[in-house]
Simulated scan of single mutants.
Amino acid sequence: MKRVLITGLQGFTGHYMARELEQHGYEVWGLGDVPSDNPRSVVANLLDLPSLKEAVAKAQPNYVVHLAGIAFVGHGQPKAFYDVNLVGSRNLLEALAPVAAGLACVLLASSANVYGNLQEGLLSEAKPVEPANDYAVSKLAMEYMAKLWIPKIPVVIARPFNYTGVGQSDSFLIPKIVSHFVRKQSTIELGNMDVWREFNDVRDVVHAYRTLLEAKPVGQIINVCSSNLVSLRGALQMASELTGQTIEARVNPEFVRANEVLKLGGDNSLLKQYVSEWAPRGLHETLAWMLHSAALKS
């Protein structure tokens, strides 16, 4: 059986995850707190355990991809990170326990934010975790909580590094840059232009998630990353070359972290043991896709 339940199906990553799975023969069900016309959609709130149990019982999944959560680090209500990312995830696992016999794999999306901002270079899963904000703490707490369920439920934890794509909110860095170029803005406010980070493609991330579901490395925590670093200055230059436009970048001190690590990315050695032919797209290709899509809509 290849029935998969995706939480957060209507979110940015959820759409791409559904498409990836459907293209590989899965029957995709979605779980969310808003009614949908999709007959394979079940309605439940992650903080309402009875409705969650009812929804899971209806879906009877063989696989689960848990994407639902609050992902924007600058979200204004810190308590919400813990309510949704930690308590909501625990409720989901409790709701899955009665159908555990039919589960092949449950993938929980954590975050590379758990490593913090103080370690330099390409970070492996063996590096110490040093979360630096409520979002990161809530994700790390979710990881520890999930380990309590591994004897009963086949859980795999993914730690994605930065990724982007068409449909991501402009509150994130790359969509903000794309938006400014499409609207032909003359200036943009950014942080430190000389930091190097990963900016991976959402299509590659969901490919990795699907492959991990199929590999079933239960109990593992696995970085989802490319190890390809690009500077913020370089990202802006790529967008300029693709559009033929020039935007003046102004450094806003509010966007600059104290003692910021200049080069930070993920070591994908463990991921490549499970994801065959891992050849992630470069940022240039992703930017071209995003700029083209945004221009068509403008």
Rank of each mutant, 00 (worst) to 15 (best):
V64W: 04
A55Q: 01
P39E: 09
L31I: 08
D37F: 05
K58P: 02
K53M: 13
G30S: 08
D37R: 14
L67I: 04
W29V: 02
S41F: 15
S51M: 07
L46T: 05
E27P: 11
N45V: 01
P35Y: 09
E27V: 01
P35H: 07
R40Y: 12
Y63W: 06
V56A: 12
D37T: 13
P50W: 10
A59C: 13
K58R: 13
W29K: 03
H66W: 03
K53R: 12
V56L: 05
V43W: 01
N38V: 03
V42I: 07
H66Y: 04
L49F: 06
S36V: 11
L31S: 01
V64C: 02
K58G: 07
A57L: 08
V64N: 01
L49E: 02
P50V: 00
R40K: 15
P50K: 13
L31M: 14
P39D: 10
L47C: 10
P61T: 01
E54Q: 14
V43F: 09
L67G: 05
L31W: 11
V28R: 13
A55Y: 02
W29M: 08
L67V: 02
P39Y: 08
S41M: 04
P39Q: 08
V43S: 07
D48K: 03
L46N: 13
G32W: 06
L49T: 00
H66G: 05
A68R: 09
K58E: 10
N45Q: 12
D37C: 10
V42M: 04
S41R: 11
H66E: 10
D48W: 05
A44Q: 06
A55C: 08
V43N: 09
